[in-house]
Design a protein around this nucleic acid. Structure first.
Ligand SMILES: [Mn+2]
Ligand SMILES: [Mn+2]
Ligand SMILES: [Zn+2]
Ligand SMILES: [Zn+2]
Lengths: 154, 154
DNA sequence: GATCATATCGCGAGGCGTCGCAATAGCGAC
DNA sequence: GTCGCTATTGCGACGCCTCGCGATATGATC
């Protein structure tokens, strides 16, 4: 497969945020390892929300030697780089937002199990209320708020 | 210790919600077991918020044979009776509110680790926003909202 | 391409919470 | 007081997540 490198580096291209992870890591004295490579590969396949378990499972498919603790640690790292953002589902389990564009809160209906993202306008009301009344800077994206959706109550 | 029963039933007394748990359980075809008795005894000692682990530990002090799964199941039951209400801390772990008077939300500062209850006025804003905009009936007490307190940001 | 400092890994153990199952024991009825 | 139905328990196993530790391997330097 000659010319592979030439092709890969041809053109400015649609730069993906994943492309320079190796560089960013090394710039900080950190290392670009096969385990991290695999995780990035998996993350490239996803959008939106994914469970930590799902990510680990997929990594294991690509590399049978995958270890959970290594994946968790790599995810922590990528979160510091701003490439993923974790939150907690209604039961406390971790969920990851891949390439979080705009942070958003989550709703979970205990009646039917549906989930929704909280729209920016609605989120703003919540954020503003806590900011103005308590000076508290909410990270809405970290939690899933439970309750009953319109279809499930009354 | 004669007259014990007479004393116990003397006067209308300051009825505690714990006093008729046995009756309420039996009324539903459920049973009043030593394990549940121990848990109630522990709950009587507490107010406000307690971790599930703390409750289990305290039960174990009173009864060395205590089993975690049994305590968890008993707590589920008491929650159905409205005597406790569980929520999740910022890390997803369970916390129990003993005799929840008024449900309230919780705030956690990721900077200093402090926690606060969300005051009713503030909670009302959040609940109303989700109710009016989405028809969603929030159970604020089930989650701990993370962020930075006034002292920890800017 | 060899060397070396140290970032990272894999492993094992532990805490938390859930569930299925077989054995046990409330408690209502007689 | 005994009997019998079945709610409940204890156990064991599992899934999720974290952490410490000794072994490994990255990648900067020469
Ligand atoms: Mn919950
Ligand atoms: Mn978290
Ligand atoms: Zn619903
Ligand atoms: Zn703070």
């Amino acid at each position: 497969m000659p010319h592979e490198q030439i092709e890969a580096s041809a053109g400015p291209a649609a730069a993906s945020p994943w492309d320079d992870v190796a560089v960013r890591l090394r710039a900080g004295g950190l290392r670009w390892t096969p385990q991290r490579r695999t995780l990035i590969e998996v993350l490239r396949e996803h959008e939106g929300h994914v469970t930590a378990s799902e990510l680990i499972a997929r990594c294991k498919e690509l590399d049978g030697t995958t270890t959970p603790s290594t994946v968790y640690r790599a995810l922590d790292l990528l979160e510091e780089l701003g490439l993923v953002k974790h939150g907690h589902g209604h039961d406390g389990r971790e969920e990851y937002h891949i390439l979080p564009q705009q942070v958003h809160g989550h709703l979970y209906c205990v009646g039917c199990g549906s989930t929704w993202e909280i729209r920016p306008e609605t989120a703003a009301v919540i954020v503003d209320a806590l900011a103005s009344q308590l000076g508290f800077a909410v990270d809405l994206s970290h939690v899933t708020i439970s309750g009953l959706c319109a279809g499930c109550h009354d």
